[in-house]
């Protein structure tokens, strides 16, 4: 397994690290990282906002080979609070060293599973007290889940081969709903037109946004139109 730090490339710094920095500042987090293995080539891609000395140390010491926030967390379906991992020797090995670099050991990893069985790992840390962390976590966990999977899809799509594999497959209902939204109908209207609940409209739009790797419904409309999946409104 080879760890590639795309953050060192100008393009990586512009896109993904900026995205992570943005998440830290809007959600009141200290640091954020993302790592995944390319399901085809097996190469590991990682981005982080951690300070350079820790990043260098981490790579030189090959800590990614034993870091439980990567290996253990990947096997959960729910976000893994690092409190669940801190009894293991591997955790102590990594986090004793992290604390020498002045880094917090409170945090959580969100495991992302893609349609081809590939996993991405999105981690955030906080210097807050255990109590404040509990409160913060509750507040941001849904947004973090969405951000994590969004970043994962973007990283996967940055690979040309994977981009082709991940051609969005919208269901007839998803297209139908998005088409009504594109012509300016509200979620309530769409629900009334199709005789379904507004919540059904929302879960389908959420799925559509995920499949198109966008964060907002207007972006989804734009992308779907450009791909010829729906007609312009």
């Amino acid at each position: 397994m080879e760890l590639i730090d795309l953050a060192a490339t100008p393009e990586g710094r512009n896109d993904f690290v900026g995205f992570l920095e943005n998440i830290c500042s809007t959600m009141d987090l200290d640091y954020a990282s993302y790592a995944s293995a390319n399901p085809v080539s097996g190469k590991v891609v990682a981005f982080t906002t951690y300070p350079d000395p820790w990043r260098d140390h981490y790579m030189q010491q090959n800590l990614h080979l034993s870091d439980p926030t990567l290996h253990t967390a990947a096997r959960s379906i729910a976000p893994v609070d690092w409190g669940r991992l801190d009894e293991s020797d591997a955790f102590n090995k990594v986090f004793n060293q992290a604390s020498d670099f002045g880094l917090p050991s409170i945090g959580m990893t969100i495991p992302i599973r893609g349609p081809y069985g590939e996993t991405g790992l999105f981690s955030v840390t906080s210097g807050a007290s255990v109590r404040d962390w509990g409160l913060l976590k509750r507040k941001i966990i849904a947004d973090l889940q969405l951000s994590a999977v969004y970043m994962h899809d973007r990283v996967m799509k940055s690979d040309r081969l994977l981009d082709i594999l991940r051609h969005p497959a919208l269901s007839a209902r998803e297209k139908e709903i998005l088409q009504w939204v594109a012509v300016g109908k509200s979620q309530q209207d769409v629900g009334d037109i199709l005789s379904i609940s507004p919540r059904t409209v929302e879960v389908h739009l959420r799925s559509t946004r995920h499949k198109l790797s966008v964060l907002t419904t207007p972006q989804a409309v734009g992308r779907a139109v450009s791909m010829g999946l729906i007609y312009p409104g």
Partner: peptide
């Protein structure tokens, strides 16, 4: 039809 897919 393809399934619903969402992080949530």
């Amino acid at each position: 039809e393809p399934p619903l897919r969402s992080a949530l």
